[in-house]
């Protein structure tokens, strides 16, 4: 096996927020009928995570399970366990119309942290990222400038962003430019 590297090889940028490549992250895409009988129990058994409701994200055992669409979930897990978990999901869902695939290398995972993190996101996405509208436990698929992306908040001062690997450098530079010192707007002054 060749050595796994994330799209940006651990790149970081220190502006008024910090932008960083999260390194290799395991990701398993799961498609199926989320409302089907036995689906939730099978997913919980294989991953430890409960099936999230619309627009939500659950976590357990250091893994996260995000709602992507009415028939799609995305599991974030350790890079080395993604293959095993995809197989386990496939086995647990045998007999159901479902598919689990290890897609760890398809996307980039970026972190954005700092007091102005919400503001940096607001510069790039049409989604409402105000504290009233968005917070930890929610998952939002939308766009960042010109490309599709999704994000959630691991805690009140941090965003975890995913985008396709082919646009990793573009998204990293978008976030870095938006987080440049001198670009502070003071949009969410509560420090949120």
């Amino acid at each position: 096996m060749s050595e796994a590297v994330s799209a940006l090889a651990g790149a970081t940028y220190d502006g008024y927020c910090k932008v960083s490549d999260a390194g290799p992250v395991g990701m398993v895409t799961l498609r199926g009928d989320l409302a089907a009988k036995g689906f939730g129990a099978a997913v919980k058994k294989a991953t430890g995570c409960a099936v999230p409701g619309q627009g939500a994200l659950t976590s357990a055992k250091g893994r996260r399970l995000a709602w992507m669409s009415p028939d799609e979930l995305l599991l974030f897990c350790g890079y080395d366990e993604a293959g095993t978990l995809a197989t386990a999901l496939g086995a647990a869902l045998a007999g159901q119309h479902a598919l689990a695939v290890n897609v760890s290398d398809a996307r980039v995972v970026l972190h954005l942290e700092g007091v102005g993190a919400r503001e940096v996101m607001a510069k790039l996405t049409p989604a409402d990222v105000s504290p009233e509208a968005f917070g930890p436990g929610q998952m939002r698929r939308t766009r960042l400038a010109q490309v599709a992306a999704a994000f959630h908040m691991p805690d009140a001062a941090r965003f975890e962003i995913i985008a396709f690997r082919s646009v990793a450098a573009y998204v990293f530079e978008l976030l870095s430019t938006a987080a440049q010192p001198g670009g502070e707007v003071g949009l969410f002054p509560a420090g949120e």
Binding site: Q54, G55, S69, P70, P126, A127, D128, R140, R141, T142, R143
Partner: peptide, 12 residues
């Protein structure tokens, strides 16, 4: 109607 979010024209 699937995500339940208010989506701006630019993401549609």
């Amino acid at each position: 109607p699937y995500c339940g979010v208010m989506a701006d024209e630019t993401e549609l």
